[in-house]
Structure formats: C-alpha cells, structure tokens
Amino acid sequence: MKKTLALFAAVALVAGANAEDKIVIKGSDTLGAKMVPQLAEAYKEAGNEVSFEIAAEGSSSAFTNLLAGTADIGMSSRNIKDSEVDEFTAKGMEIKDWIGAYDMIGVIVNENSSIEGLTVEQIEGIFTGDITDWSEVGGDAGPISVYTRNTSSGTYKSFQEMAMNKRDYGADTQKMAGNEQIAEEVAKNANGIGYVGLAYTDKDGIKAVAVNDVELKPENAKDYPIARSLHYYTIDGKLSEAATKFLTWATTDEKAAEIVSRVGFIALSE
C-alpha cells in the first residue's frame, strides 16, 4: 500500500512539473493563426523546454478565459473594454497589457474591381449600409456584398472604432469565421468587399485598396488610418515564470521580431 501511494505521489509530482512548463495562450485569431504559433515554435527551437497550447477563437475569448483561469496569456487584437476591466477588478485581479506588434487592417476588394482607393467616410458608409452600390463610390455599378469578421473578433471591434466612427455594422453584412474565409469570398465575388489583416492581403484574387490615398504597405504604417496594436494580456502577479520569460522574449528578441514581420505584422522595433 505504501508503495502504491509513493508511486501515485511520484506521478503527481511529474505531472505537476509538466503542468508548470505548459503555457496556455488563447484569444484573437489575428495573432493566434500564424504569429503566436510560429513564435512558440521558434522559442522551443531556441532551447526552451516548454509546451504550448494555443487556441484562437476571437479576442473576446481571451478575456473570458483569463477570467476563468483557463489561459495564462490572452491574445487580443483590440484594447480591453472598460466593462471587461471591471469584471477583472470585481474578481480582485489586475490586468497587464503587453504590446506584441502593430497591424494594419487592409480593406480588400475583388482584383477585377475598378476601385483603387476609398476614403474612410466611404468605408464607413459601405460597412454601415448607407452606401449599397459600387457606383456611389466611383466604381462600376453593382450591389456591394460586405463581408466582416464575426462579433467575437477583435478586428470586428477595432475596425468599428477606426473606420466606422463606432457605428454599428449594417444588417446586410455577412459575418465570416476568419480572415481566410473573408479573402476567399471576396476573391470569388466581383462585388465583394471585406477587411483582413496585412498578412492576408497578398492572397490570389483580391487586392487591398488605398485608404485616404495611403497605400497598404508596412512603411506607411504611421499614415495609414486603419492601423492598431496587437496585445498580449496577462493577470498581474499570477503569471508563471516560463510564461513571463516567453513574453519578454516574444516582445523584445530580434529573432521574434523577424518572425513578426515575416507573418505580415510590424514589429515594435521597426
């Protein structure tokens, strides 16, 4: 009996040690689809013995998971909302914000479209449903099909704040599960318009339009009107050592910066 108990204890210890070195990261699809998994791979290759669990279901899930204690790090492509901060304080937790990279949101149209550029006002009109036909913004006539991310996405929210004057999306918009799906639909629909992260704008069949005459290029990040920062959120004082080390590496190391720009975002140092 004693032997069995000892065995159990040993197993529990090993399991405990493993659990400590596992970093659970949840949240935004924008960060979680490419950037964070690649950072995690590179971090492991650099000789750090940790394992990662990464789930990308939209920025809002970052906060629900942090709140429930089911994630160490939350990825978010938008700033935390006041109401969310309140929920953390209500549980006696304080949230810490790490900025991971900058992103530009590209407004994409079908590659056969005659549209080359739009103003922010026109974009607001299109996405809120005030403008319903391409001829109203200088294109060939045709009813506009608007594709957006779904409501749990941080891009959904930050696009609303940056390009739509915080107004609600029009009822005619179609809510897609991710960047890929939006690019796919716009590529197949001559009258389609949508928005995706910078990394997705070089897909076949679509092109990014200039916004307020500024083209979507990393070097224009400062002038481009629809740009934002990408965040990692953690709970102050509750972050494991391994996770802290990873985040510090991901936000400061040169190799990490290289990966960040390779997947189409703009690293902090640039």
């Binding site: 939209g58 809002s60 899930s61 629900t64 709140l67 929920e87 779904n150 409501t151 749990s152 599960a177």
Partner: peptide, 8 residues
Amino acid sequence: AQELAEVD
C-alpha cells in the same frame, strides 16, 4: 454556435 464562445 457562433456567439456562445465569446460571451460571459
């Protein structure tokens, strides 16, 4: 299915 994941 689409929205339940995001809500508190």
